[in-house]
Amino acid sequence: MNRVHLPRSLEGAWEILDRVPEARVYAGGTDLFVKLQGEARSRAVLVCLERIRELRGIRDAGKHVWIGACTPYTEILSDPSVQEHFPVLSDAIRKLGSPLIRNMGTMGGNICTASPAGDTLPPLYILEATLEIRSHSNTRRIPVQDFILGPGQARLEPGEILSGIEIQKGHPYPVHFYEKVGQRQALAIAVVSLAVMMRLSEAGDIEAIRMAFGSVAPTVVRPLPIETQLAGAPLDEKTLREAGAMLQAHLFPIDDIRASARYRRRVSANILQRLRLRGKASMKDSHRFGP
């Protein structure tokens, strides 16, 4: 059995964390409790962060939107400014887990778990989100891609917690796209995922694009050279096929029980083709498209 603390304020949390530095924090617990089960009856002291008001909610601060690290997904999905400004993130969240998991789980948990398959990570990479990290005595900010080091590894010191995620508004990329390839239609871990934001010219060519892949390397892959290469190119089969070939040098996938590395490589390249549909559709409506 574990001892669980349920502080209602940050002050309360610091008080416990100062006293029991080895305590483990959690929000929804949808990752942590699965992990504890594997640790042969861990007796770790647990501190639940989900009731702390300072860590919850969504604030539109004009230039950016701040999302509390412990805000459950369901709440994020119903927020109008997230829907309006970051459809790629809403799409990814809609494909994460199931309604039950989305009622419990949080983006803070997804980021700190630092799984290459985490569904919110590719969108956060291309949105160039900044994380707000707090300890009892300090607050620091760090870009998401610098925070995540590898599977299960994040740049979080003892006594620190992730308090919020800041995302700049007004990115000049009206077309958003998220695709998750999993083993079933819901409740599936991504075998490959792709988040894209792009801007097209009147003629339908790519003016600018950002892309990030999940589940194909120890961390999310954002292939910057390909983004550069694609700027100005036509959005057609050939361009995307060449991008898919170039992409291979950026991927370091593994073979596991869910899929082979070979399959992950192939599908990463293949699903770029789906952007062509998105290109056509974007002439009318500016966002939200899934396979």
Binding site: Q183, R184, L187
Partner: peptide
């Protein structure tokens, strides 16, 4: 069910993929 040389590889429902309502 994936078994390699007699050893169970699909140990639970995170790797043994049952259809869900959407499938």
């Amino acid at each position: 069910v994936i078994v390699e040389r007699g050893v169970m590889k699909t140990k639970d429902f995170s790797t043994y993929i049952l259809p869900c309502a959407l499938d």
